[in-house]
Design a protein around this nucleic acid. Sequence first.
DNA 1: TGTACATCAGTGAACGCGCGTTCACTGATGTAC
DNA 2: TGTACATCAGTGAACGCGCGTTCACTGATGTAC
Lengths: 203, 203
Amino acid sequence: MKRGYHHGNLRQALVEAALALIAERGPQGFTLSEAAKAADVTPAAVYRHFTGRDELLAEVARQGFDIFAALLEFAYDEGRPTSLAAFEATGRAYLAFARKYPGHYQAMFESGLQPGNHPGLAQVAAKARDTMDRAADHLARALPETRRPPARMISAHVWATSHGVVELYLRGNGGPQPWAPEDILETAIGIYLRGLGLLSPDK
Amino acid sequence: MKRGYHHGNLRQALVEAALALIAERGPQGFTLSEAAKAADVTPAAVYRHFTGRDELLAEVARQGFDIFAALLEFAYDEGRPTSLAAFEATGRAYLAFARKYPGHYQAMFESGLQPGNHPGLAQVAAKARDTMDRAADHLARALPETRRPPARMISAHVWATSHGVVELYLRGNGGPQPWAPEDILETAIGIYLRGLGLLSPDK
DNA sequence: TGTACATCAGTGAACGCGCGTTCACTGATGTAC
DNA sequence: TGTACATCAGTGAACGCGCGTTCACTGATGTAC
């Protein structure tokens, strides 16, 4: 692809170059210089669009949280067809996101980025979590009040389990496993929901 | 502490210097040069004890898995007093380890180390997992065979949930939470065990 | 017990490298007249 | 429609830095006689 002196959309091209680098070599493998090179541009050009290396990385993560929040929202689908099915779908969406967008995922969760330093990032991350919280809240209403854990506790449980399955069994820090990550997560959540009293005790 | 030309136990001193660096600044913050400096020694001296930076880091992780495996074994205590209590104790041990040995924990799980490149590492990691598997197996025997998930599936669930709680709520990539990580994990495992049919449905 | 000597843990200087960042600049674009 | 000019995206060279690693060396230790 040819281009003249001006690139056209260098900002997004840099984001995508960074994404490819991260997906291929891990968050450590990402450098400003290499992202610039992959976008066919001098490292100095990056500074026309970002204040520096960190801001480029943060933008990658931000776009990741955007996609993530949208996927969760789509999976939740306002609680349709049932609050239970919608809740299960959000759990699956977590894993599906990590599988389909590994560059984004790593920028978000494994790059050592401090959300506190990037206000926009924290905001869009909160949006994703809010969807989970709503799904859990909707689900919790089906429980008798006396034995109903707080909705945010339930969503914390599912985030933790989903995140753990991704880190250990999809991204591979836990050694090989005889099951697909999807099956591990599915059964874990199934047993958990039975424990909440939302699935019948028979398989 | 004074010392002469020879250090005495430089190898272990380097491991401990690395540990302190990692605990303080994260696995990225660790460099061979700084570890050497912290041990009051020239960077070149490191090469008398390790083949290079990676092997030093791997040794830190190896010692971590050693401690971890011992803690799990201690918590499991051959299934005493009951298989259920022993199983719950191993879950708690995971979190306790991450809290008490943050440097080891990060070297093991967040340093980007490839266990495949360090045979000794994979071996001792397998030992830790084996303890979890035994705990799960012991527990599973209390279940009627028809509705008993494979023991390794159960231990995968608990590893994942424990790991997720540590990453998100102890190490802080999931935003602030109104509960202590210990409480999140405890309730998650409680609900899960009820789902397995091992705890009565009343609180 | 005293001395010669082999061993080897640590030194200090140097290396090449790639990193993030800066700076004065240049060339393309698009707008005002 | 044609030209002058302001804007600004990208260049290219340079910087200082800290990294991991190497090498010839030196000084402490401990053992053989």
